[in-house]
Design a protein around this nucleic acid. Structure first.
Length: 226
DNA sequence: TTATGATCATCG
DNA sequence: CGATGATCATAA
């Protein structure tokens, strides 16, 4: 059995069932499951856990701008936890299309669609644990609460207003309570097309939407209560 | 080049 | 010492 893409789950139950098989496994176990070698240098394999999880669970492959499980409308996100069992880092949501942000509504926004339903897969990411021995946790299927959805929308509107005015130069990660904008590029010299304040085409640093650590921390904590 | 998967590493 | 800005890998 060579390394291959698993079959897509046909139901939420099947997906959650597959997730239960992962709970408690180490990253070394995960590598065995997906027939993939553990990364030699984790620093240079930042997305490895997420990519193996996609592979094992049968998420749609590659870089398509679609939910990981299109049939189910579910987005899969691994969630690295620090030594205290809490999310430490922000979570990337999606790329921002600077050339096509006019007239977008929150309902239509890609970032909103992705956050309608997310399957969070927490795992130990503390550097005090040897990489191969870090364990996967129990997956949490989440949908935003009313207040979460409202705050996300508010953040999005504040950010989009600036973007639509061509003010991406003045935008920074300081904006937004839950949702923030950060660079999303190979490096600081990368450029993509956009419009400036005068509505003229220009080139600027590519951006993406991210969720602040406090937000994912809240999601995880709430899941323990349920 | 644009999208995905993210974490790294420096600064305030 | 947490958040911001920068960076790494891969697919199409």
């Amino acid at each position: 059995m060579a390394s291959r893409q698993a079959k897509a789950p046909s139901s939420v139950e099947e997906l959650l069932d597959n997730c239960r098989q992962l709970a408690g496994l180490s990253l070394a176990d995960l590598a065995r499951k997906t027939c993939s070698p553990l990364p030699v240098s984790p620093t240079h394999a930042k997305g490895w856990v997420g990519q193996q999880a996609e592979k094992f669970l049968g998420a749609s492959a590659g870089s398509k701008a679609e939910p990981d499980f299109p049939e189910l409308g579910i987005e899969l996100k691994t969630l690295p936890l620090n030594a205290n069992g809490q999310p430490q880092e922000s979570t990337y949501v999606c790329h921002i299309q600077l050339m096509a942000l006019n007239q977008q509504t929150w309902q239509q926004a890609w970032v909103n669609k992705k956050l309608q339903q997310v399957l969070w897969l927490p795992y130990e990411a503390s550097k005090t644990i040897e990489y191969a021995k870090r364990k996967l946790g129990h997956a949490v299927l989440w949908q935003p609460s009313l207040s979460q959805a409202q705050q996300l929308q508010q953040d999005w509107e504040e950010i989009m207003e600036k973007l639509c005015m061509g003010e991406q130069q003045q935008l920074s990660a300081h904006h937004g309570q839950f949702l923030q904008v950060r660079p999303k590029a190979a490096n600081a010299k990368a450029l993509t097309n956009a419009y400036d304040e005068q509505g003229e085409r220009c080139q600027t640093l590519p951006l993406g939407f991210y969720l602040r650590p406090g937000f994912t921390r809240e999601i995880l904590e709430n899941s323990y209560l349920g």
